[in-house]
Simulated scan of single mutants.
Amino acid sequence: MPRLSYERYCDEVSAQTALLREVLPGDDLSARVPTCPDWTLADLVRHIGGNVHTTDAVVRGDAGAAPAAPGDRRRVGVPDTDDPAVLTAWMQDGADAYARTLRERDPAAQAEIFGLPDSLLFWARRAACDILLHRADASLTTGAGYTVAPDLAADAIDEFLGIVTDRRVNEKVFGRLPELYGPARSIHLHATDTTADVPAEWLIELGPDGVSWRPGHEKGAVAVQAPLTELLLILYRRLPLDRDQVHVYGDRDLIDAWLDRVYMG
């Protein structure tokens, strides 16, 4: 169940894109992105811009161009340039247009995007969380600061775990996920810096039939405690476990196995 409103997700599609744009260098996007090593910053912008332009077209009823593969300038609508001003303006224009399109429609309306039919609420949330995480990629590349509103960071963890446990897509997105199926084991995630108005604890349960999760404070075979934003970035493998404010208690091999097999770029 999403924590935030449909309107908030629509707002975040534009806002997170603008925040990402702010940390990009204005003169050169050729730097390699260490958390997406096959991409440059220009590829990252093309990827985000391609996604928002494409999803906007699908929701409006015009399938348009396919999503831009990183670095692929043959896609219709992707600027054939490395000029940062042109690329980032195109990305922002796409995000703003998609947000407007979403706001004009019922969040319960259905759309099939990337072969998956779901509600516009689902797709607005997916876009907001995707851009939020790619903003971390840009920030880690340029050395810029990275902060996230606690309610949005907690919701992004919920959303990520929802994808991991969604049987329609989980084994397609995470091809090695079945390697974790087997004897019952659990992982407890605990954010250390939130207040009572933003619950930020999760239990992931692994078993012979798959994986499930639920919110709450419960003992697991392994517990990971970290500030909320760091916990989010660790789950997405943008940051390593071995950090000053991160504590692992219990079965370290289990959380290492999870992080090795559950990755979404």
Rank of each mutant, 00 (worst) to 15 (best):
M1Q: 15
L4E: 02
D11A: 10
A18T: 13
L19R: 10
P25W: 02
P34H: 12
C36T: 09
C36I: 06
A42E: 05
D43V: 04
L44C: 09
R46G: 06
G49H: 00
D62L: 12
A65I: 07
P67K: 01
A69D: 11
R74T: 14
R75F: 09
V78H: 03
D80S: 12
A85K: 12
A89W: 12
A95F: 04
A97P: 08
A99Y: 04
T101Y: 04
P107M: 07
A108P: 07
I113A: 00
P117W: 12
F122M: 05
R126M: 04
R126C: 02
A128W: 00
D130P: 03
I131S: 00
L133F: 01
L133K: 00
D137E: 11
T142W: 08
Y146H: 12
T147L: 12
A153T: 04
D158M: 03
E159F: 03
E159K: 01
G162Q: 02
I163S: 03
I163H: 05
T165Y: 04
D166E: 12
R167I: 13
V169A: 10
V169Q: 08
E171P: 05
F174C: 07
F174D: 05
Y181I: 08
P183F: 10
H190D: 11
D197R: 13
L203K: 03
P208F: 10
P208L: 14
P215K: 14
H217G: 14
V222S: 01
A226W: 01
L228H: 00
T229S: 10
R238S: 08
L239H: 10
Q245P: 07
V246E: 04
D253E: 14
I255Q: 00
A257P: 06
D260M: 12
D260L: 15
R261T: 09
Y263K: 09
Y263M: 11
